[in-house]
Design a protein around this nucleic acid. Structure first.
Length: 770
DNA sequence: CAGTAG
DNA sequence: AGGCCTTACTG
DNA sequence: GCCT
């Protein structure tokens, strides 16, 4: 690698990491509270910081978003752009050129650590470092330790004994390190998580300032001056490595000790002569905007005039006890280090350095060499790389600090030549309504998946969905690479993302993605019923940015017009109670028309979801063997419900020939006052009794579950669709298209389909795989 | 047929 | 390197 | 994206 490309890369990552900087850790009050505890408050910082936000009101150029994947990151010239809408033509503002984080997505932080992390209350201490040095006791895999600081009692809180689970030996990158955090409590969920993780990676967490401390981990919003003030020091002991939060994050993500000297890990120091310190963008006041989104549907036109706002990240209550920082704690107090302080830089420290710090120092220097020449940072954030994964081979795997995690994913009973156990449908999902410690991680990944979906990536969204489904099944917070990679359907890249989210609360890839100026309108467009990436990106290419633009300038299908007209309504999720009510209304109507008719509410409702995107109605009747026999009923039902003003629009109706089996449209709850009626998407599916089971299976989903079942059927030489399970299906060898329907194996009983496929029965609510 | 939705 | 679910409706 |  040449020197030139090296520095290029370095620059790139510097820019990348600038994305990672932010005002505070999402808890602005914390900074102030902390400073109160210092003898000398420093509050001038914000005013000194230059804004990084460039005056770019000009519309950024946009690029065509092709439906073909892969070209995602390819900047593309725009061919025919209508007039004024576009300022200039050029590269899209992608990852590289866009240092600032948009207001709306500014801070993913502040997410409350979920319960599982909470259980790892980490006020506790490992055995003192002396113990570990003198007694060469092999560290067991799990240590239950008790607190030695007494901080708990000071805080007047009863705390559980915590259990930290050390990561496997090879990954204990912090062995021999002793960390002092500043702020030094674990009140902030994220800090707590960092502390726990540090310990799990071999570090010792100390809340008392001692001379054994190797690393000082400083909150991002604190300056060097804050630190010194807090510690009542004039200068830092030379052997102590002071770094910011990013340092830990990167260590975890890369599973190795990073070079603490890199600029991005330095604690801010406005006083350090050079006023060129990069300052994070000013705090974003996103409230005015986000309120718009949450507003009730009355503002139907709210979205029309201007491009939509970015969705605000889920924010967890930041309520923090006012008592927060407490006294500087330290039993030993800063006095404990007075001897060393006195000798400052004299070589008296030399021996001590050698003794207590060599671990840290050594690895540090080794690492420094590596960092500065190899720069093994991977470049996954650049979409275009589908080259082989260099990141694990760059150091030849020689580093003991970074043994590549070999994945041992279980194999199982082969049946008919397929690894049946590897199908997701073999393992149940969990009810979506159940809170999960990984919910936050999931929400972030889902957003990135959604992003990939709307830019036309065909497969990533599926991969993300699967990963989210697996995460939802875990009973504790997944926050190490190891834990993540062990999970089926989670590979190297997703594992790294998961770690990043869990340890930093953010995902830079997502932030840069959503920062793309074309993303907001793209998101807006694909939200229209009947519009997907292809159309949306075409409209975008033509320069359209608002729904208004579309209505005025674009030829729209009737369905799309409807989709725009009721955009806000159809965007909203439907509370379960309303689905129940809507379903009941239909049942009543159906019973009046034909008492034998069976109405089943399928979809996410049947899976037990608390809210649904639409309503799926299965219409069946005992004794029927063809959809044709049900079409007359559907017809009269539709007519009736329409006259009742229950159905308010038809989007897709079956062909006239009577073979059609589904009806798509919109409905409202007539009982409600007109004004509060919200249009809902509703689907009817006609199902003869002989196909009831298969239809139920199909209409219950979820998507991933269905596809998994179908794929399994496929591998077993069968075919599964909404009508039944078929065998002896002949497929074209080349196109893999079905040539013969095959022989019906089962369609009537849902359970029998499971059985025939060798899949243990899953209740509907166990079929939540995404 | 491609696009969209399920 | 190549697969990744299947069918139905729209225009 | 992941898996074979």
């Amino acid at each position: 690698m040449t020197a030139a490309s090296k520095s290029d890369k370095a620059r790139f990552f510097e820019e990348l990491y600038r994305l990672n900087e932010f005002e505070s850790d999402g808890e602005p009050n914390e900074a102030r509270e902390f400073l109160k505890t210092c003898s000398k408050p420093i509050l001038s910082r914000t005013s000194e910081e230059p804004s990084l936000i460039p005056p770019r009101k000009v519309l950024k150029p946009f690029k065509k978003v092709p439906s073909i994947q892969r070209s995602i990151s390819e900047p593309e010239k725009i061919k025919d752009v209508p007039n004024a809408t576009v300022g200039s033509i050029g590269k899209r503002s992608g990852l590289r050129g866009n240092p600032q984080v948009p207001a709306a997505s500014g801070s993913l932080l502040g997410k409350e650590a979920s319960s599982s992390a909470g259980s790892a209350d980490s006020t506790n201490q490992r055995p003192s470092i002396e113990d570990r040095r003198t007694v060469s006791n092999p560290v067991p895999n799990t240590l239950v330790l008790t607190n030695s600081t007494g901080i708990d009692t000071m805080l007047g809180k009863k705390r559980k004994k915590d259990t930290i689970k050390l990561v496997r030996e090879a990954d204990r990158i912090f062995n021999g390190f002793e960390f002092f955090f500043l702020r030094n409590d674990d009140k902030s969920p994220l800090r707590k998580r960092r502390i726990t993780l540090s310990r799990e990676h071999g570090a010792i967490w100390t809340t008392t300032w001692t001379n054994k401390i190797t690393h000082l981990i400083v909150d991002n919003d604190l300056t060097r001056k804050d630190v010194l003030t807090y510690l009542k020091l004039n200068s830092l002991p030379p052997q102590v490595i002071m770094v910011n939060e990013e340092y830990l994050s990167d260590c975890f993500v890369q599973r190795r000790v990073m070079n603490s000297l890199l600029k991005k890990y330095q604690v801010k120091d406005p006083d350090a002569g050079a006023a060129k310190q990069m300052a994070p963008p000013p705090p974003a006041s996103e409230n005015s905007d986000s309120s718009l989104q949450l507003k009730a549907p009355q503002s139907k036109l709210s979205r029309w005039g201007n491009p939509p706002q970015q969705e605000t990240l889920p924010r967890i209550a930041q309520a923090r006890p006012a008592s927060y920082p407490q006294q500087p704690v330290v039993t030993g107090g800063p006095e404990a280090l007075s001897p060393r302080e006195a000798t400052t830089l004299s070589d008296k420290d030399g021996s001590m350095v050698a003794e207590t710090q060599d671990f840290g120092a050594l690895t540090e220097w080794i690492q420094l060499a590596k960092d500065t020449e190899g720069l093994p940072l991977d470049n996954e954030d650049e979409d275009a790389v589908d080259s082989v994964d260099h990141s694990d081979s760059d150091d030849g795997g020689a580093s003991p600090l970074r043994a590549p995690a070999k994945r041992i994913k279980r194999f199982a009973i082969k049946q008919g030549g397929t690894n049946q156990a590897n199908f997701q449908c073999m393992t149940g999902g969990t009810a979506a309504s159940t809170a999960n410690p990984n919910d936050y991680t999931i929400s972030v990944l889902e957003r990135l998946g959604a992003y990939y979906k709307r830019i036309g990536d065909q497969w990533r969204p599926t991969a993300y969905q699967k990963a989210c489904g697996m995460l939802r099944k875990q009973d504790h917070l997944i926050c190490t690479y190891e834990e993540a990679i062990e999970i089926r359907t989670i590979g190297h890249r997703l594992a790294k993302k998961i770690v990043e989210i869990a340890t930093t609360g953010r995902l830079r890839r997502l932030e840069s993605a959503e920062a793309d100026p074309t993303d907001a309108p793209l998101k807006l467009f694909v939200g229209i019923y009947g519009v997907n990436t292809t159309l949306a990106s075409e409209w975008l290419r033509q320069g359209h940015r608002t729904l208004d633009d579309l209505v005025k300038n674009v030829k729209l299908s009737e369905n799309q017009k409807l989709g725009i007209e009721h955009y806000d309504d159809l965007q909203q999720r439907i509370p379960r109670e309303e689905v129940t009510a809507l379903g009941q209304y239909i049942k009543d109507a159906a019973a009046a028309l034909d008492p034998d008719i069976e109405i089943i509410i399928g979809g996410s409702y049947r899976r037990g979801a608390p809210t649904s995107g639409d309503i799926d109605i299965i219409i069946s009747k005992p004794g029927t063997t063809s959809t044709t026999s049900l079409t007359p009923f559907l017809h009269s039902l539709i007519t009736h419900l329409t006259s009742q003003k229950f159905l308010v629009a038809a989007l897709a109706v079956p062909h006239d020939d009577g073979t059609g089996s589904k009806w798509h449209g919109c409905c409202v709850l007539p009982s409600k006052p007109r004004q509060s009626q919200i249009w809902r998407r509703i689907d009817f599916l006609l199902v003869p009794a002989s196909e009831r089971g298969a239809a139920l299976l199909y209409f219950t989903g979820d998507d991933i579950f269905n596809r998994s079942m179908r794929l399994l059927a496929n591998k077993m030489g069968m075919s599964l669709n909404q009508r039944g399970l078929y065998e002896n299906v002949m497929r074209d060898r080349w196109t893999r298209k079905k040539v013969t329907e095959g022989r019906l194996v089962e369609g009537r009983e849902e359970r029998r389909i499971f059985e025939r496929l060798g899949v243990p029965w899953r209740e509907p609510w166990e079929r939540v795989l995404h």
